[in-house]
């Protein structure tokens, strides 16, 4: 039973990672790509680690738990750093973007 639950959780995690990668290829600009990859890869990796927590020995479980906490803290922060750096470097949004408050305020 434990094996089954952990396998299901790992498959879900792998699927989310796959969606993130498809998004990385299909979406048009840096910011949209960051959105897709950050969200999907964070939760996908968390699901894989939850699978490890359920099935593995207790020492591996504790380590995966720590990994989940650190991923949840660092992944959004690094996405924020990357997007902020691209704004500062002057990379413009996709041409069909609707609104850009940062540009408007600079003028």
């Amino acid at each position: 039973m434990r094996e089954l639950i952990s396998s299901i959780s790992m498959v879900i995690g792998g699927l989310f990672n796959l969606f993130g990668c498809i998004g990385l290829v299909r979406l048009p600009d840096v910011y949209n790509r960051l959105q897709a990859s950050t969200k999907c890869v964070t939760l996908g990796t968390c699901f894989i680690l939850i699978g490890v927590i359920i099935s593995g020995p207790i020492s591996a479980s504790l380590k995966s738990f720590l990994c989940i906490i650190f991923i949840l803290i660092t992944a959004p922060t690094s996405a924020h750093a990357l997007s902020r750096a691209s704004i500062k470097a002057g990379i413009s949004l996709w041409e069909k973007s609707v609104v850009n408050k940062m540009e408007e305020e600079k003028k």
């Binding site: 989310f16 969606f19 993130g20 498809i22 998004g23 299909r26 979406l27 048009p28 600009d29 910011y31 949209n32 959105q35 897709a36 969200k39 999907c40 939760l43 996908g44 949004l93 996709w94 069909k96 973007s97 609707v98 609104v99 850009n100 408050k101 940062m102 540009e103």
Partner: peptide, 21 residues
């Protein structure tokens, strides 16, 4: 959020309307 991203990414027309608010 993940289901939302999956929907937008797998949809053939790519239903996005991005912007900074």
């Amino acid at each position: 959020a993940n289901l939302d991203v999956a929907y937008r990414v797998l949809h053939p027309n790519l239903p996005i309307r991005p912007g900074i608010v």
